[in-house]
Nucleic acid binder design. Structure first.
Lengths: 224, 224
DNA sequence: GCTCTTTATTTGTTAGAAGGAGATATAATA
DNA sequence: TATTATATCTCCTTCTAACAAATAAAGAGC
């Protein structure tokens, strides 16, 4: 890291987002390839330096747009990373977010002013990442897993109606485990995240499946 | 905020900690009074600017020590605050932590190089705070409430043995509600945070009370 | 066309665990 | 012996996990 005469000077703020999707039962994350130093040629999560005239989430969304072209995305801050040597140029802390989006509904820019490539990577096959983004990604995935059971964060993947067997596949992909179809149904309904639409549709079966949707407002329940 | 020619320059990082304690059934937070501008004379949470040569938690603990004299304290990061105008001098983001400590076991410095006073305030009687510390405090309290039911964060208040009626008073103070003594006992034991010591002690009653202690390792249980 | 088989979807059943509230037993003090 | 906080017991309801059964369509064969 560049030496500084002052204990405080030359500090900066990164806003980084791990953008997840699920395609055919596979959880994937969006990575971009850096065009410039440091870590030139390396894959990283989407993100970059915060501007002075924008709030944290605004900056995170701007970075997402600049590096991928994605415009409408809900994000949620989960942790800030600030090891002394996490960036090689100057002292940077990274405010990290997660986001979920349906990859089939967005067109990701392959190249931008700062990136030479962009693609969805299965979370089982992540290349080496620049900065401390491997650590950030690991914690992002943990956070995502905790959120899908208590919030409507998967609404990004199911904005309208869906069947329970259909969304079960997504839960299984993200949590990386299989569930009994009957108990999953009961458990998911007991979480009070979704509601019946009184309509039916089709998934993989021959019998029509009931359609559900995420509730408008979700109230969280406490242990005590 | 001071105008900057660059979108990136003149950024800085605050590390802020909301330090809680519980005294006789009252939840309190440690505040310090600022000696210098900005917000001179205002009460704030403990914290200050991060140095370039220290990690985030190291910086947070150093700030706690410098402004209160408290040395041994476990802290946990919960959120970063970064509204554009949260500091009036330059663009600062605040990485916020919570900590818990037994106020009867520590001696808090009343005055330091940067502070003219320090005291424990009941969370029901918080004065106006400098910066965005009122917002930080509110979220810190929410985070604390979520943590005492899933981690051993209260170990700082009960480092050794304790009785269940005794710790129930602390839970009630923090969560701000009363519990049935029989069901609280069952519920707390079912959380698997504490274990029997096969010893007895005294609390308020005349019958000896069983002594418990926090477990060494706590494994968290998932919804699914 | 008609029936039978197949398959995913949905509902139901059961035993055991956990939760909530009343009642009882215990071990000290005064 | 009366009192009091602590600890245990009981009953009933609800939740959970594993398993069984019923349902509604599609497709195969005649």
């Amino acid at each position: 890291m560049k030496k500084s005469n002052s204990l405080y000077k030359n500090q900066g703020i990164h806003v980084i987002t791990a953008i997840f999707t699920v395609e055919q039962g596979v959880t994937k994350v969006l990575l971009v390839k850096r065009k410039n130093e440091p870590y030139k040629g390396d894959w990283t999560l989407t993100g970059g330096a915060l501007y002075n005239n924008e709030d944290l989430d605004t900056g995170a969304k701007r970075e997402i747009f600049e590096k991928t072209g994605i415009e409408d995305i809900e994000i949620e801050q989960f942790k800030t990373f600030g090891k002394v040597d996490r960036s090689s140029v100057m002292r940077m802390v990274a405010v990290a977010y997660i986001g979920v989006i349906d990859s089939s509904r967005v067109k990701v820019l392959r190249e931008t002013i700062n990136t030479s490539n962009a693609d969805w990577f299965s979370i089982d096959k992540i290349p080496g990442l620049g900065f401390d983004h491997e650590e950030i990604l690991e914690e992002a995935l943990n956070y995502l897993r905790s959120k899908i059971v208590s919030t409507d964060i998967l609404k990004a993947l199911f904005p309208h109606e869906f069947t329970i067997p259909e969304i079960q596949k997504t839960y299984e992909a993200i949590l990386n485990k299989k569930f009994d179809r009957r108990n999953f149904r009961k458990k998911l309904l007991s979480l009070k995240l979704i509601e019946d639409t009184k309509k039916t549709g089709k998934f993989e079966g021959k019998k029509p499946a009931k359609l559900y949707k995420f509730k408008k407002s979700i109230k969280n329940q406490n242990v005590f």
